[in-house]
Design a protein around this nucleic acid. Structure first.
Lengths: 120, 120
DNA sequence: TGATGTAATATTTTTTTATAAATAATTTTA
DNA sequence: TAAAATTATTTATAAAAAAATATTACATCA
């Protein structure tokens, strides 16, 4: 019942992407999760963006979207100060990251099962 | 264990997209499936593209990608002839469409379950 | 008080992508 | 043999997205 008989390549698979959305607007996907993790590492939106090869503007837009959609603050920024400023994320943001990784794991399993089925 | 407590909107959900890929190259997704179905309806890549608000060039690229990746022909085109030409799809392509709809259904269920869990 | 490095925002430039338009090739039909 | 409508392909144009650049605001520290 697979499709092995009509595909040339042996390494074909079911693939996909996954995110959380709210009112037609994207809330959280792999890019935003990685950005949050990089912010934890570097303490800066600027540095996090550079590490990801992303423009600061785009990164800031993501942070802003996260904060305006959430009921509680997820990312806290500071202008000026010790090192000219900086950014940290809240406990709730960390819970969000943890949740996303678990969701991702379940999705990965779904894709693997479907890919298996496809190659049967 | 959901995220209800940190999202403003009530109508948030887990969403995603799904496709079949082969060697890093896309093979089949919702757009190509719809294109194939429109070709069945109209008998023409040209008309199918117009019905979808898509340029002929893009549609032709999709057809070409499908045919070059498959072991058997999926779309058969004719230049010139009764109505100037035309296009049909093979039985294998129809099986592909049927498979995709079933896959889609299982994915839909996955997303619904995860959305339910999210809102708990 | 000036230097520092970042956030926040606007503007400009570049790149990418998609669309539109134009052209040649084709085969049945009138 | 000319007309028709489509496939196949190239070239030009437009739209969208992304990136780069520039500017302002800010609070700590030397």
């Amino acid at each position: 019942m697979g499709l092995k008989y009509l595909l040339k390549e042996k390494s074909f698979k079911v693939a996909g992407s996954l995110w959380i959305e709210s009112e037609e607007q994207r809330f959280l996907g792999p890019g935003r999760v990685e950005l949050l993790e990089r912010i934890v590492e570097t303490g800066s939106i600027n540095q996090a963006a550079k590490h990801m090869g992303m423009s600061y503007k785009k990164a800031w837009g993501m942070v802003n979207s996260l904060n305006t959609q959430a009921k509680v603050p997820l990312v806290i920024t500071q202008i000026g100060g010790e090192k000219g400023g900086g950014t940290i994320i809240t406990e709730e943001a960390k819970e969000l990251i943890a949740y996303y990784h678990l969701l991702r794991e379940r999705f990965k399993q779904f894709l693997e099962e479907e890919s298996q089925f496809l190659a049967e």
